[in-house]
């Protein structure tokens, strides 16, 4: 995937440079770009290390299990089928906690095992192996709520922002709105598809 993106961008740039006579600029961009990526990584490194360490401390002190316990009752409304059978709820809440604290590396395996558990539920979309709760879970994982967007803040800091943290509150608002809308959207789409499937069965 990334390889395709790279080749697409590079080819497009080359064609545009030839057409616009900007080959000097292009060659300079290549020379500078590589160095800038390293500079960016170095400016991110300190904060990434510190934050990963802090998160691990909070995790070790029991914060993640506290969060996942706290979120569990709410999951009843988001994943009704899974909650009823108590299937995968533990993994889902742990995945939420890991996402919240920005532990992407920990969230992924938890998310995958939650997906596996959810796939063992009865299918109710009509397609084999896929059910509404799986879709909701995967879609919500494309817009996870994160408490401290480390990479973003460091990027802003590195670019010389006068208020790198200023966007945290807007992100909280936007992210909660997105999560709520996502739950609603999946429920509506799920309901819509379910009734359509039922209608189709009746016609058969």
């Amino acid at each position: 995937m990334i390889g395709k993106i790279f080749s697409f961008i590079v080819t497009l740039s080359f064609v545009f440079s030839v057409l616009g006579g900007r080959m000097n600029e292009l060659s300079q961009a290549v020379l500078q770009g590589a160095g800038q990526a390293v500079e960016l990584s170095i400016s991110m490194l300190g904060m990434m290390c510190l934050w990963s360490g802090v998160i691990k401390v909070l995790d070790g002190a029991g914060l993640t299990s506290l969060i996942s316990k706290g979120i569990r009752p709410v999951l009843k409304y988001i994943y009704p089928a899974a909650y009823r059978k108590n299937c995968g709820i533990e993994e889902i809440s742990a995945n939420f906690a890991a996402n919240l604290l920005g532990m992407g590396n920990a969230a992924l395996p938890l998310g995958l095992s939650a997906m596996k558990k959810l796939s063992e539920l009865d299918s109710d979309v009509g397609q084999r192996k896929i059910n509404a709760d799986m879709i909701t879970f995967a879609v919500l994982n494309t817009a996870p709520f994160q408490l401290f967007p480390t990479t973003l803040i460091v990027l802003r800091e590195a670019a010389g922002s006068i208020a790198p943290y200023e966007i945290i509150l807007p992100i909280y608002i936007c992210s909660s709105a997105t999560v709520f809308f996502g739950i609603l959207l999946c429920r509506i789409l799920g309901y819509f598809i379910k009734t359509r499937e039922k209608g189709r069965k009746k016609n058969d």
């Binding site: 300079q28 990526a37 960016l40």
Partner: peptide, 20 residues
């Protein structure tokens, strides 16, 4: 992530410099 970042930052810089 550094290797991926190098490739993509170079690509995006090229995209920007070429006028695309």
């Amino acid at each position: 992530i550094l290797p991926t970042l190098i490739m993509l930052v170079v690509a995006v810089k090229m995209l920007s410099a070429s006028g695309a």
